[in-house]
Design a binder for these strands. Sequence first.
DNA 1: TAGTGGTCTAGACCACAAA
DNA 2: TTGTGGTCTAGACCACTAG
Lengths: 234, 234
Amino acid sequence: MKPPKYKLIAEFIKSKLESMIWQEGYKIPSETELATQFSASRMTARKAVDEMVNLGLLERVPSVGTFVRSILPQSSLLEIKNIADEILSRGHTHKMTVLSKLLLVPNDAIAISFSLQNKNVFKIIIIHFENDSPIQLEERYVNAEKVPFFLQQDFSKITAHQYLTSVAPLTEADISVEAVMPTKILKHNLQLNDNTPCLKVTRSTYSNGQPISYVVLYHPANKFRLTSAYRTAQ
Amino acid sequence: MKPPKYKLIAEFIKSKLESMIWQEGYKIPSETELATQFSASRMTARKAVDEMVNLGLLERVPSVGTFVRSILPQSSLLEIKNIADEILSRGHTHKMTVLSKLLLVPNDAIAISFSLQNKNVFKIIIIHFENDSPIQLEERYVNAEKVPFFLQQDFSKITAHQYLTSVAPLTEADISVEAVMPTKILKHNLQLNDNTPCLKVTRSTYSNGQPISYVVLYHPANKFRLTSAYRTAQ
DNA sequence: TAGTGGTCTAGACCACAAA
DNA sequence: TTGTGGTCTAGACCACTAG
């Protein structure tokens, strides 16, 4: 299984960018030059450049050349925050209760969302309290292979999210947000009235391409808002 | 200026998706077939398919074929996107109705959120439709001093957001998301049942420190998800 | 005029899946 | 065995920019 040639060229470009040898605004070798350098056809070199352009790392200027783009600090947009820290930063007290802990093989829906099939996962359900009032129900699935000691943690000392990021650095995440009506169980656990909708946040996290955790968070809508700030570069 | 051949092929595919002739899961003609049909080489047909795959509308399965992807209505929280483009990129039709347009001095709540006091703002209310079904109510306040010709735009040709970014480049934004129960008016306009919660997105946008627009977007929860992807810098 | 990216062709070989 | 997508080649012509 050898990688295709265009991947090699793309890796070459990436390494130049990572090592900062090619800095912002630098004009990279023309497609013809890259092709010659790698004994490839121009179409193949172009495909490598295509990939980097799609990633937003390079920018083409017709008739002129291809240049290193300025980097946008996009990661700060929706920070993956720790609920304990957030509550403490509001000057409130944080408490949690673990409702259940177990080891299982995920059902289809979870497995597909989480790209884990026929693998063991841990499941844990936690309720978080802010000043003794429930503010979040956390239903979390964790890749048991990658994080074998997950269930042995004392979650009153370290949150699940804190522990996971310490074991496997968070590199990618997919987040989705919906508004839902709570189920009976949810209503009971979050001490909700009849007509209170919930914010449902679903998040899959990955560490270097490996799925680590799939979590569904429910927040009573009258107590919670998800916020995010956006800033362009410069 | 005639469009390149691969664009024609891409448009052909897009039209099949928009008209729902090719539905979810449908296996589209092979690259070779497309090439023959358009008297193009396979590489050119492939480039058209590439484009649709990158847009997330098609999915390749090696050795088997290329298929129409299932589409969940979702929107990016991170990127400030244009709802019309998003709907179109799902192969659906977009329509809008302007409910009201006016010039006013903002009340306190709006003024504070929007850091505009004693200044004129335009207010506009728009309903967006995806395939004739209402998907978003947009209640927007615009800084009249910075964007004097806002109300004169034809919003069936350009969305409010498109026009604003063309006049004043978006540099900062604050976004917040809540789950709420719809008011009577909202229920009526979004054609909602009694028990459908709404996702309420509030966004303030700025251009180089100047407030440009404050917008509240309501989405029926059964039709909408907000999503976002997170990637660390390399 | 020389160099660049944008497009395009008409072939080719491969690995893989389905019949 | 056939058809598919994945990769690749060695040319080509174009419009455009810059020296």
